[in-house]
Amino acid sequence: MVQYITEGLLEEIAQTLSLENVSGTDAGITRATGVYVSDLLSDVMGQAHSGEIWVTVQSHLNVVAVAALKELSAVIICQSREVAPAVAARAKGEGVVLFRTPLSAYEVCGKLWELGLRRAA
């Protein structure tokens, strides 16, 4: 079982990183339990854990399906990749939180690490 030092409140994370909530899904009091970064959806399906934030440049509709399937706490779409209205709407319908940022996946992960979302030694 992967242990993390700190869990992060999604709302605080979004504020700190200035993330845009493109789905308009209520982040509420959801806590992120960790982070997974990958642009291969098949990899995320196999490796990500429930409650984690998923960092990616993919913005295809299947991202929503995979995030819902894996019960991820949120998806952060990097590099200001376009999110089609249908994707945002589906995310809202599925209760998936979709954030977007101009930052790169590297920068996002660096900031999340600094916030304490990291694996315990």
């Binding site: 291969l40 959806l41 098949s42 990899d43 995320v44 399906m45 993919q58 509709l61 299947n62 995979v66």
Partner: peptide, 15 residues
């Protein structure tokens, strides 16, 4: 294939 294959990259067949 994970390299550029539809299921490898997008995990599922798009609806």
């Amino acid at each position: 294939k994970t390299h550029a294959g539809l299921l490898g990259v997008l995990g599922l067949m798009p609806e």
